[in-house]
Amino acid sequence: MPQVVSANRLDDGIVVFVGRDRAWVELLDAARLFDTKADMEAAVAVAQKDVAANRVVDIFPFEVKISGDTVTAVALRDIIRTSGPTVHRDHGKQAVHG
């Protein structure tokens, strides 16, 4: 399964992902997908530089699945983390999604 590399932004704590052009993005749709373990690990290594540069904290990769155009996390924890509280559909990333 493809993976996404994630972290929390240092100054506001918001969840971010390594984007297609390697910059950090806020929405999973814009995240870059890593199909191999080697690619993912390389991305984590690059992302670690932003930890060192105090831009983000707590880097970790997680699995996603693709159906049609949409990317969704696999584990419930990651689904909630990438969308927002299931009890507050108006907060978190799901609010931006509409």
């Binding site: 929390n8 506001d12 704590g13 918001i14 969840v15 909630i80 509280p85 978190g92």
Partner: peptide
Amino acid sequence: LMNGLYLQLHAY
């Protein structure tokens, strides 16, 4: 942490 600030699932 000594000032009650955690990093949680979505944010601080």
